[in-house]
Design a protein around this nucleic acid. Structure first.
Length: 282
DNA sequence: ATGGCTTCAGAATGAAGA
């Protein structure tokens, strides 16, 4: 089973590329970020015609997330607030949910997918940077709640706008003062991962040069001056089942591409695992 | 080069992305 994540930088602008990519890569699940469209205007029917169920949470002009899934999802919700019902957190969660950056649902087999578009943060110390750190702190609460309520395995994926390690940046010189690589951003993400999530790509390669985003400017892609900021993080049982993780740079080479490339993880079917590890219902 | 390039919204001397 393959699950992909792709920041498409406008689904309406990129629809043909997404469709063509899905024909070649008929993944079980595709998580999209930066769809930049309100839900009634989402180009739903062409994607459904390819055999996908669509779940989206968008807003005008900015942000927006969507999940395409061959199997119908259960327990679908958008934003932090539906999960964080505790009065101490709920109003702050509602406020953060004005920006559409979170959508989740559960696949048959009790596998929860969480699709995220982490705020960019603009510049270190800016108001948007503080927003990014607050948002990541709320994400930690949100995932902790999801882990406590039900015995799902959880896959979180999306555009994290953070390169967690220096090997995830083409040139880490001065990274401390660069958005997406500052210490506080890395610490905030690390604190999320400490709940029990592991980086799927790093199961398969320790190498640098694995990038998922290249700036549109300065011919960054041609010179391969990229960053790895799009990730799949897995709970322990899923991490065991991961049998591959690739970044597909093919669409980044097309005319008028997204600045991000899709990242695909492959999971071994739980039917092939020993019965003690088998997941009910899959 | 306090930029470059691309998107959206709507008419900008723009805002935001990363």
């Amino acid at each position: 089973m393959k699950i992909a994540t792709w920041n498409v930088n406008s689904i309406r602008t990129r629809l043909d590329q997404v469709m063509q990519w899905l024909v070649v890569n008929p993944v079980e699940v595709l998580c999209l970020q930066e769809t930049k469209v309100v839900d009634p205007d989402f180009p739903r029917s062409p994607l459904e015609a390819l055999g996908y169920n669509l779940y989206c949470a968008g807003q005008k002009s900015y942000n927006g997330v969507a999940i395409l899934s061959r199997a119908p999802l259960e327990q679908v919700s958008a934003g932090f607030a539906p999960v964080l019902t505790d009065p101490e957190l709920h109003s702050t969660a509602l406020s953060l949910d004005e920006q559409k950056r979170v959508i989740t649902g559960v696949l048959p087999g009790n596998l929860r997918i969480v699709n995220l578009y982490v705020p960019n943060g603009s510049a270190i110390g800016s108001e948007k940077y503080l927003y990014k750190l607050s948002w990541l702190a709320m994400l930690r609460q949100y995932l902790q709640q999801l882990q406590s309520t039900k015995a799902n395995e959880i896959l979180i994926c999306g555009d994290f706008n953070i390169a967690l390690e220096d090997r995830d940046i083409h040139d880490p010189t001065g990274r401390e003062t660069h958005i997406m690589a500052s210490d506080l951003e890395r610490q905030a993400l690390q604190s999320v991962l400490e709940l029990g999530f592991a980086d799927s790509l790093r199961k398969f390669t320790p190498d640098g040069g694995q990038f998922s985003w290249w700036d549109y400017r300065a011919a960054s892609f041609r010179r391969n001056q990229g960053w790895r900021i799009d990730h799949h993080y897995l709970t322990a049982g899923l991490y065991e089942r991961a049998i591959g993780c690739q970044i597909d740079i093919t669409p980044r080479k097309l005319p008028q591409p997204s600045d991000h490339a899709p990242v695909i993880i492959e999971l071994q079917s739980s039917e092939l695992l020993p019965s003690s590890q088998k997941i009910e219902g899959e």
